[in-house]
């Protein structure tokens, strides 16, 4: 069986595909492998956003819970997706819950470590935002479409 180093795993993820070896080496210092079983809670609303997860395999549900009703899944994320962006934005707290729907293999990047490296190396910071922003933009656009409640009135 072939063992993948964390740099190699990062280089295979869509967000980091375009990064050179040196940059991946820098990021690898903040990275660790993660494993969640189906049903595991990944993070909870209000938790410090101390990690960002790059999903390699499996499915995660992003949920919002209210006291009046059962949690609602507002988004699911899958292999190649990025789970959690609150680490980039103060006050660095998760604004939703995340749960593993299936077994998940992921790489997490430590938020403090990443922010420090980005502050120390603005070129790296700029590239990080360049590659992460499109993922966030896709999700914001998707949420806008969800808000439109498109399917309510179409006649058959």
């Amino acid at each position: 069986m072939r063992i993948h180093g964390i740099e190699e795993i990062l280089s295979e993820h869509p967000v980091f595909k375009a990064f050179d070896k040196e940059t991946l080496g820098l990021l690898a210092g903040c990275a660790r492998n993660e494993h969640f079983r189906a049903g595991d809670r990944i993070f909870t609303e209000g938790d410090p956003a101390d990690k960002v997860y790059l999903i390699r395999e499996g499915d995660a549900a992003v949920e919002i819970a209210t006291s009046e009703r059962a949690p609602i899944i507002v988004e699911t994320l899958h292999a190649g997706d990025v789970l959690g962006w609150s680490w980039m934005v103060p006050p660095y707290r998760h604004m939703s819950d995340a749960r593993a729907m299936t077994e998940i293999r992921a790489v997490s990047l430590g938020a403090d470590c990443m922010r420090t490296k980005c502050d120390d190396n603005p070129v790296l910071g700029y590239r990080m935002f360049q590659h992460l922003l499109p993922h966030m933009a896709v999700r914001v656009r998707a949420l806008r479409m969800q808000l439109l409640d498109l399917y309510g009135t179409r006649k058959g």
Partner: peptide, 21 residues
């Protein structure tokens, strides 16, 4: 689907995201 309860095991999100995949 646009949103779902916890019992749903499928995808949640819009068609366009699903189409890209």
């Amino acid at each position: 689907v646009d949103h779902a309860g916890s019992a749903w095991t499928g995808r949640v999100g819009v068609v366009t995201t699903c189409l890209d995949r």
